Amino acid sequence: MQIPAELDSQHLEKLGVLEQTLKKNTSELIAFAIDEIDKARYMPMEGERVLAILQKTGYLGGMPDVTDLSENYKDYLAWDDKGLPCKGL
């Protein structure tokens, strides 16, 4: 398939540099760019990867959704008989 394209001088210069350094022609570079963009659509973002890891390992915990948690967090924690927190909710 032939695709006519107009490039500004900056992109034309970048294309020339890429062709020389990667030893690829324009068609190969366009195919490569399409593949990379297509792959990126399915790759999770950094925050999504971190969240998935935390969920998978069970490291991600939760606290109740209350408005005064920062002020009264001790009321929401489980305490052992020595007065030390023994586990979160």
Results as ranks from 00 to 15, higher is better:
R49W: 00
G47W: 01
K82T: 07
I34T: 10
R49A: 05
E48F: 00
T57W: 02
I3G: 01
N72Q: 10
D68A: 01
H11A: 14
V66Q: 07
L51I: 07
I3A: 10
K56S: 10
E6K: 10
A78H: 09
K24F: 05
V66H: 02
I53D: 08
L84M: 09
A40C: 07
L60R: 07
P4K: 14
A5L: 15
W79P: 00
Q10W: 03
L12Y: 12
D81K: 14
I3R: 14
L69G: 02
R41L: 11
V66P: 08
L60W: 06
A31Q: 11
S27G: 15
S70F: 05
T67N: 09
D38H: 14
G62R: 11
E71Y: 10
A33E: 03
E28C: 03
D68F: 02
L12F: 10
S9Y: 13
P64T: 03
K14R: 14
T26C: 12
Q10V: 12
L7S: 10
A40R: 13
K82L: 11
L77T: 01
L18C: 10
E46G: 02
N25T: 07
L18K: 11
T26L: 09
G58V: 03
D68T: 12
K39Q: 12
K39N: 11
Y73H: 11
A40V: 00
I53F: 09
K74G: 00
S9H: 14
R41G: 04
K56V: 05
K74C: 01
Y76K: 04
W79A: 01
W79M: 09
D81S: 14
A40M: 13
S27T: 14
D8K: 07
P64S: 09
Y73L: 12
S9P: 08
K74Y: 02
G47H: 05
L77N: 03
P85Q: 03
K74T: 04
I53A: 10
A40I: 02
D68N: 13
N25R: 09
R41K: 13
H11T: 03
E71D: 13
I37V: 08
N72L: 05
I3L: 15
A52T: 12
L84T: 00
E48R: 01
E6P: 00
L22T: 01
A52K: 10
K23M: 08
K24E: 11
L69V: 05
G61I: 03
R41V: 04
L12P: 03
D65F: 13
E6S: 11
Y59M: 13
K39P: 04
T21W: 06
E46S: 08
N72R: 13
G83H: 02
D8W: 04
K14C: 13
L29M: 06
G16L: 07
E13V: 11
P4A: 11
G61Y: 04
T67C: 02
A5K: 08
P85G: 01
Q55Y: 01
E13Q: 14
I3C: 07
E36Q: 14
E46T: 11
P4Q: 10
M45A: 12
P64Y: 04
Q20L: 12
